[in-house]
Write a protein that binds this DNA or RNA. Structure first.
Lengths: 178, 178
DNA sequence: GAGTATCTTGAACAAACATTCAAGAAAGGA
DNA sequence: TCCTTTCTTGAATGTTTGTTCAAGATACTC
């Protein structure tokens, strides 16, 4: 995962993967069939890691809206860190490969759609808790929230100043709650 | 430009570039030194094209806020088209190369910062024209607008349904004007 | 502890890659 | 028309790439 996050799929060579995994080419091919298979496995592991992380954020005994804010703050922290290991493998791979590999594009889209649906559930909960107006559409809020996160992550790659990213996230949050 | 937009830098081979440019390897190397030089030239051409396009959008005899909306609508149309040739070379290359090539990351960041500043000018104009509250910070508005565009473009790669993208853009616009 | 099964190793492979360059074509000037 | 200069060509070069596989190590069974 970190190798692909750092160099992207195409630029990550088998030697890089050998170094990153500690496995020799033969073992990698035995376990994952080929380089693409390793990417698929990395995407699956990323999905597991991130859904577990998501559950952790939202298992806190707080109002949903508070957990959503904490979740956003964490994204901001990842953006500010400038650490490629904390970037999003899904959007990174989507940007690189969507045009060329339809299966991978669909896997990534599916994962991101799951995240969107999970977020929508949390927004629905926030509506029940009266943190957010009942008039708002949870699905739309989730899409807008996700769009904001995508935007933040891209923006941070050009402008890693903490205050700027924090200010943008704050506006995003208040636009969603308003 | 279109070759790099379609396959990304690493996956675009010299043969692809030969086909795309109609030039033979020798000529390409004579004119651009190497593959990276061709990317630099493509980035420069993209900058020229996009600044010209920007001027065209904002030379319309309309209120600045109207021109901003038209500009956004155009981004939405590009997103919906699903045409890789209409994607943003800057964000695409930024995602792929920022981690590995500092010079290219700085060129791209510089170009995107110019765009941000140009947008800030238009927001300042909109304030003068009373389309937007005088209390708002033009620079912040420009950053938020740009962040929204980044988000839209990424979102559209997973969810190319026109209505969804249009709805997200509409919310972005109204959040900025509010 | 012998024998079977599984896993690991890293050298070897062909294909594809970016890059070079000497030969040839075209253009321009006198 | 001839010479000089500039531009174009595409085969050849040496890497690097992803991939394979037979040999060796390890683990497991009886």
């Amino acid at each position: 995962m970190t190798a692909f996050l750092h160099k992207g799929y195409a630029k990550t060579s088998m030697q890089d993967l050998k170094k990153a995994t500690g496995l020799h080419p033969g073992s990698i091919y035995c376990a994952f069939e080929n380089k693409r298979g390793l990417l698929l496995a990395a995407l699956e592991q990323y999905r597991l890691d991130r859904t577990a992380e998501f559950e952790r954020f939202f298992s806190a005994a707080q109002l949903s809206i508070v957990n959503l804010k904490t979740y956003l703050d964490n994204v901001v922290a990842e953006c500010i860190s400038g650490d490629s290991a904390k970037a999003c493998l899904l959007t990174k791979a989507l940007n690189e490969m969507a045009e060329q590999d339809e299966e991978i594009q669909q896997i990534i889209s599916g994962n991101l759609f799951s995240l969107q649906q999970s977020l929508a559930e949390k927004f629905a909960q926030a509506k029940i808790e009266k943190s957010i107006s009942a008039k708002k559409d949870s699905d739309h809020l989730a899409r807008y929230f996700l769009m904001g996160i995508y935007g933040l992550r891209t923006f941070a790659q050009t402008h890693p100043e903490a205050e700027v990213i924090e200010q943008l996230a704050e506006q995003l949050y208040s636009d969603i709650c308003r």
